[in-house]
Computed example of a mutant assay.
Amino acid sequence: MQVFTDIACHLATAHQGDAKDAGAVLSDRPPSLQTLVLYGQRFGGIEPHFKDYKSAAFEVLHSGLRNAQALTCLLMLLDCATLIAVMLGMLLLQAGQHTVIDWHGERGLSFLQLGLRQLAGLCYQRLPLPSLVALTQTNPPPACASQKKRTAFDSRIEFSKVIAFSY
């Protein structure tokens, strides 16, 4: 298959047993189950990032920027801001202070949202940022704002559970 007439690629499709539709991945690598597993791992981390850029935190679409270089610079700055906010959110959780900002029974806000709200509070009170420390080596449990979201998360379909693969 050719994309834009000069980029060779492969289309891999897979169908998970109880899923209504098949999944598809366009890749420069020959199709394999590993292709779908890698895509699933990448997508799980990328999709929330796009949501944060578009609506959950930064509203990039409202920036009015159309220049590629300006957008690249903005996204680099937002990545730095995201890292700082996530670190602040994790510090709150480690100190057991997240409940001051997040009133859900369990942690319902993402680390980004916790950190952004903490940052806003620090700015409002004209307090300095706390010393930032390295992120933990293990992933903490994901945030879920409701039991419905927790159930949806626990029963999500992952590409690593593909049972049929077609070339």
Rank of each mutant, 00 (worst) to 15 (best):
M1L: 10
Q2F: 14
V3R: 10
V3A: 14
F4R: 15
A8E: 09
H10L: 01
T13S: 11
A19H: 14
K20L: 15
D21K: 05
G23H: 08
G23M: 12
V25I: 10
S27P: 00
S27V: 07
P30N: 08
L33D: 14
L33M: 14
L33Q: 13
L33Y: 04
Q34T: 12
T35M: 07
L36T: 00
L36Q: 06
Y39K: 10
Q41S: 06
Q41W: 02
Q41R: 07
F43H: 11
H49S: 12
Y53E: 12
K54V: 05
S55Y: 11
L61S: 15
H62Q: 15
R66V: 15
N67H: 05
N67V: 03
Q69Y: 07
Q69L: 09
T72G: 06
C73T: 04
C73V: 07
L74A: 02
L77V: 00
L78F: 00
D79C: 05
D79L: 08
A81T: 02
A85D: 06
A85F: 07
V86Q: 09
G89W: 00
M90F: 02
L92C: 11
Q97Y: 04
Q97T: 05
I101D: 11
E106H: 07
E106M: 06
R107C: 10
G108N: 12
S110I: 11
F111R: 01
L112I: 05
G121F: 03
Y124K: 11
Y124G: 01
L127S: 09
P130N: 13
S131D: 13
S131Y: 02
L132I: 13
V133W: 04
V133A: 15
A134I: 01
L135P: 06
Q137C: 15
Q137R: 11
N139Q: 13
P140Y: 07
P140H: 07
C144S: 08
A145C: 08
S146V: 08
F153Q: 00
F153M: 05
I157G: 11
F159P: 08
F159G: 15
S160E: 04
K161E: 04
I163H: 11
I163T: 12
A164E: 13
